[in-house]
Nucleic acid binder design. Sequence first.
DNA 1: AAGTTTTTGCAAGATGACTTGCAGAAAGCT
DNA 2: AGCTTTCTGCAAGTCATCTTGCAAAAACTT
Lengths: 291, 291
Amino acid sequence: MQVSLRNDPWKTAVSLIDKISDQAPSLTPSERRLVETVIEKPTAAALGTAGELARAVGVHEATASRLAKKLGFDGYASFRDALREEFIATHETATRFEKTITTNTPETILGKLALDEAQALGRIEEFINADQIAEVAGLLMGARRIFVYGYGNAEVLALMMVKRFRRFGKDVQHLTSDPRGMAEHLLGIAPGDVVLSFAFRRQPRGYAALVEVAREAGAKTIVISGKSGALLAPSPDYLLAAPRSGDPDAFQTLIVPMTVCNAIVIAAGLTAKEETLKKLDRLGQLIERFE
Amino acid sequence: MQVSLRNDPWKTAVSLIDKISDQAPSLTPSERRLVETVIEKPTAAALGTAGELARAVGVHEATASRLAKKLGFDGYASFRDALREEFIATHETATRFEKTITTNTPETILGKLALDEAQALGRIEEFINADQIAEVAGLLMGARRIFVYGYGNAEVLALMMVKRFRRFGKDVQHLTSDPRGMAEHLLGIAPGDVVLSFAFRRQPRGYAALVEVAREAGAKTIVISGKSGALLAPSPDYLLAAPRSGDPDAFQTLIVPMTVCNAIVIAAGLTAKEETLKKLDRLGQLIERFE
DNA sequence: AAGTTTTTGCAAGATGACTTGCAGAAAGCT
DNA sequence: AGCTTTCTGCAAGTCATCTTGCAAAAACTT
């Protein structure tokens, strides 16, 4: 099922993620590596040639050309145009992030961490736009019941979302990872329900079964993930994927996905016609209160 | 004289602006129009071909190719690479600006203005970096005397800078536009002095004479301008050029250049070893106090 | 008005980037 | 082990982009 945010044309990146999600199960090993690199450095991919991307990955440029065709583009140039349209801000589309840390790299751990977070947060809208946040928030607030699932470290985020949406008066179920417990909770899942899951590093245990059961019952599925969310199989109805800060091979923080969650909560508050936010400092205060 | 910010390698955009400034007096009419379009929409120019830029301007692609050579590049591809390096943030170089207004275009005039300003401010570091601000602030604080000149609307900014730097205890002369008054003030200009001027839309009256007199006397020259500052002739020693918000053919605001001035003043305060700023909210408060 | 210089479009050639037919290698199946 | 299918590199061909010699047009000078 394709990600369906709106009927009117939306940003090409959503379409690109959508195309990648559609093809994820059928990608060959070389194609998968190409896709991972494109997701890792979309701007570099948007600026380079098929040969440059292929060499960076260690495959042939012909493979890159075939991948573009496989993803539904006329050729590699069309694929790259789609990357440019989404990941490169032009005069007309620029959204920015205020510099919060000096350009010089701090020597302290905290300083370096803050810099990494600011940079990762600064890139968040390269991957997730306000329409996605608004759509997901609206879906959750309109749900009959909400099922929230987080495996491993992500359980922290799942618990936070359970608490927040219960404060909105929603019927929220907190799924656990053991199959029996999950099955019991999902017994009554029906159309009008929404499943919210988190996915980092690798596909979480129980994810495939969860999404399939939800789909069969006619419920919608939402995933908040790191940069590899497009490779999830089966793909959810809604995917909010943004790379987290930190070394991919070592410790990565939950700051970026937590920020995504906060944005959804705030948007949900707007959806519920709470106080209208008019200034950024007010928004900042609200974020602080939620943290 | 080339713009000299540092001995170590600096960002290519400064080099690009520098190259354009060097060649400004000798550009043909078609070349000038190409340059103006590149300055107007640097990202679009960075992504397109020589043929696309040429067609947008109404000249032949051969002219675009010759311009690149004239500016000192091996060819058009090298010229475009320089544009990309500076104007397109990649994974490694991204500095961002926090979104201050919703992506939806407000219907009110104030709302629309705020959006335009935020976007223009958000792009300011595409054109001016922290090193430039620090260098200019250091130059002003180390000057023996400072001559400030602003013609037309820019006189507001000139007066503000005169007041601010006088509060730092600097010897500041406020130049007026009539030739006799300017000549009288400039009688005693000498090495160690600094001239600060503003230039918007078109080259201000008396500018050429001012910069030439300053140069002959061995004084340094600084210009804060809109996006066409690279076309000033003669070129100043230091150029801080960033496009202002608003319709170029109608009313444009002074918010962006005033922000540049505020940044210089704040950096000058740091140079003078005043209170060290550690958090952005503190910086925000300081900006509000200065406004 | 005539002559000279500069500008710039035209078009042929060069070069880079991409596509696709082919075939060998690798993986999977019996 | 043998056969089949899939994957992917190779290389020839195609297309897009850029460069540059040439010459006409425009601008400048006398």
